[in-house]
Design a protein around this nucleic acid. Structure first.
Length: 213
DNA sequence: CGCCAGGGCCATA
DNA sequence: TATGGCCATGGC
């Protein structure tokens, strides 16, 4: 018997097809994007990434001053804060010689704790980095996931980790599953669940627990 | 014009 | 622990 979270995933995959996320050319670009997109539209974050294109190597980012970095990422908003956050992240990244394969050897719980302990990296940013840069299967709880599950009428925990664990409890610990799941929720949110509670054209309509008014 | 986007930190009580 | 304020751009 399949759990409802698996059914949601199946419906989304069936409707939207494979997403092959995260939208970045390299793991390093992905990590920068994860900070730039905090509480910001991807459109704006992407403009900032465009400006960073010539600097998308750890050494180049390190060489920039905070002010130079802030200026480059200006379109993403919160640029002063995000410049500091990127610098904080780089300080941690450097302790592993910017070696992604080396970091992948770290125990996943330990690694998650390390990421969250970085100034400016909260649970969501840590989790997207874990899955999309370090290949660790984990469910990402973002605003889209919360909104979509809420609209479906599911009673989800408010706390980030409880929400995440409730989903993970019923799913196999599979990298591509979680990779696609988050990407599919984002793709789905672009089209649906923006204004109306839920509609008949929604691919998830049949899985809605909420009684329609 | 006002609202808000793929968060997270910090001050206060 | 829990709420509120703050950061800031660009699209609609």
């Amino acid at each position: 018997m399949k759990h409802k979270y698996q059914l949601i995933y199946n419906k989304l995959y069936e409707h939207y097809g494979p997403q092959r996320w995260w939208p970045a050319e390299t793991p390093f670009e992905m990590m920068m994007g994860s900070i730039l997109v905090q509480n910001t539209s991807w459109r704006n974050a992407d403009k900032a990434l465009d400006n960073l294109k010539p600097f998308l190597k750890p050494e180049a980012i390190d060489y920039l001053s905070i002010d130079e970095l802030a200026h480059l990422i200006r379109p993403s908003g919160f640029f002063n804060i995000k410049a500091k956050r990127i610098k904080s992240y780089m300080k941690w990244f450097k302790t592993y010689n910017y070696d992604i394969d080396l970091i992948k050897k770290i125990d996943r719980h330990q690694l998650r704790k390390e990421l969250i302990s970085i100034q400016g990296i909260g649970p969501e940013t840590a989790d997207v980095i874990l899955i999309y840069a370090f290949d660790i299967p984990i469910f990402v709880v973002d605003a889209y996931a919360r909104r979509i599950f809420y609209r479906l009428g599911y009673d989800m925990p408010e706390s980030y980790d409880e929400f995440r664990k409730q989903i993970e409890k019923d799913l196999p610990m599979d990298l591509m599953l979680y990779n696609e799941f988050h990407a599919l929720l984002v793709e789905h949110a672009k089209e649906h669940c923006k204004t109306s509670p839920i509609c008949e054209s929604c691919p998830l309509f049949g899985l809605c627990d909420r009684r329609l008014a």
